[in-house]
């Protein structure tokens, strides 16, 4: 379990893909730990990064900014980024920010890993 501002994040390597599963709210307090973790993972040059958001009930604009930054890093490194399993509340933030068509969003992680 994590506590305070440190986010619990599970990371699983699957062939040349990396599955990242943050757990809990992603807000101003906790987005830095997600940003740091994604930066380290992208430094290892995976060809596919899947962020499983099924266990994220809430995300604010700092969380969205973290994922936009990850998307930009992926594009620069020829890595494909998928956002999987978004809950409705989180999806609505992407829609409000008009980013739902910028990211590749899948219903679940299997769809992303099989794509």
């Amino acid at each position: 379990m994590s506590s305070g501002n440190e986010m619990e994040i599970n990371v699983e390597n699957r062939d040349d893909s990396v599955l990242v599963t943050p757990i809990g709210d992603v807000d101003l307090a906790r987005s830095p730990s997600l940003r740091s973790r994604l930066g380290k993972i992208l430094g290892e040059s995976p060809t596919r990064l899947v962020v499983d958001l099924s266990q994220v009930p809430y995300m604010d604009s700092s969380g969205v900014a973290t994922l936009v930054e990850a998307l930009q890093q992926c594009r620069a490194r020829n890595c494909t980024l998928f956002l999987a399993g978004m809950q409705d509340r989180v999806r609505s933030v992407f829609e409000i920010a008009r980013l739902d068509t910028v990211f590749t969003i899948t219903a679940d992680t299997n769809s992303a890993l099989d794509a």
């Binding site: 973290t66 936009v68 930054e69 930009q72 409000i96 920010a97 980013l99 910028v102």
Partner: peptide, 17 residues
């Protein structure tokens, strides 16, 4: 919002919701 970059979305979100 056409510019895809991190940050600067807070005011837009507040006004939108």
């Amino acid at each position: 919002l056409e510019e895809i970059r991190p940050g600067g979305l807070g005011v837009h979100i507040m006004r939108e919701v």
